[in-house]
């Protein structure tokens, strides 16, 4: 039993390491992407400055300019560490081009295989962008002054791990549609837009009117972005913390099961020719 587990661990560690080498090929691409990501941040800085120039100090449900900026800066860090980059398209092309046959013929679990690749690419991405992102955090360090980090950071890190898994399981489930659709790009971007809006990537969800905020808190998307960042800023407190974790992991389990069910159904209609 132990040796089976060891073998499995060695196998997926190897896949992880291969994934890392593969991702390193695109290090410049990663760097351009990370630096380009600062352009919208620049937009946010100026836009929110203008907004707060007009609003009362506490006009935004208790947000002031500094906390709002801390929110968007934390989102950039969260994205760098947890967001799947093109994993959906890679999975879809594996399915469409028949490359999953190679996995089917080996004692490899495709889900674990993709998780290994996802984690390895996140690690390389984080390593490449740590300098620009770190410089950004140092430059804007004043914005984090009022945040009780010693208390909130452990929760935020835990929620961040959940966020990575939630983002991945959603991505995986969506990519499974490639068994039925020739091109999944449009579906990916439709879901992406909903995740951005209802997940708190465009604005913190607690600036919404109470009924809308309440709805968003039950949807999975809030647990991708708003929940970890809200915990970090200390805006989610008390019972809401453990309730949040519960809902986050319930959604992870849900999307994992959906992904696996779609995989099994998809395999029944999968044909691979000439591989």
């Amino acid at each position: 039993m132990t040796s089976v587990i060891q073998q499995q661990a060695a196998l997926y560690t190897r896949i992880f390491s291969l994934g890392m080498q593969n991702s390193l090929v695109y290090r410049w691409n990663f760097l351009v992407r990370a630096i380009a990501g600062f352009v919208p941040l620049l937009g946010s800085v100026f836009l929110w400055k203008a907004v707060f120039a007009d609003a009362d100090h506490e006009a935004f449900s208790g947000y002031n300019y500094h906390v709002m900026m801390a929110y968007f800066l934390s989102l950039i860090v969260l994205d760098a560490l947890t967001s799947p980059v093109e994993d959906d398209f890679a999975i879809a092309s594996d399915i469409r081009d028949g490359r999953i046959s190679q996995v089917l013929l080996k004692p490899i679990n495709y889900f674990t295989y993709r998780v290994s690749l996802f984690l390895s690419s996140r690690l390389v991405y984080a390593a490449v962008v740590c300098i620009p992102v770190g410089a950004m955090l140092i430059f804007f360090r004043d914005y984090f002054d009022s945040i009780p980090m010693a208390r909130t950071l452990p929760y935020a890190l835990l929620a961040m791990i959940g966020s990575a898994f939630l983002q991945f399981t959603i991505t995986y489930a969506v990519a499974m549609l490639a068994f039925w659709l020739l091109e999944i790009g449009s579906v990916v971007f439709i879901i992406f837009s909903i995740e951005f809006l209802a997940g708190g990537h465009v604005f913190p969800l607690d600036v919404l009117p109470a009924p809308l905020y309440a709805i968003c808190r039950w949807l999975p998307f809030a647990y991708e972005y708003y929940f970890p960042v809200g915990l970090f800023l200390g805006r989610i407190q008390g019972d809401a913390i453990w309730q949040g974790f519960l809902v986050q992991w319930a959604w992870i389990a849900f999307f994992y099961l959906v992904g696996q069910a779609l995989w099994r159904r998809g395999l029944k209609r999968y044909t691979s020719v000439g591989n």
């Binding site: 836009l47 203008a50 907004v51 120039a53 007009d54 609003a55 006009a59 935004f60 449009s186 971007f189 439709i190 837009s193 909903i194 951005f196 809006l197 465009v202 604005f203 600036v207 919404l208 009117p209």
Partner: peptide, 25 residues
């Protein structure tokens, strides 16, 4: 539909901003 949703997202964002302020810049 994708492009329309992203456009709607921008408008929704503006809607939320102007819940709280009357003018921006």
């Amino acid at each position: 539909l994708v492009e329309f949703l992203w456009f709607a997202l921008q408008l929704a964002f503006i809607g939320v901003l102007y819940f709280n302020v009357k003018e921006i810049a």
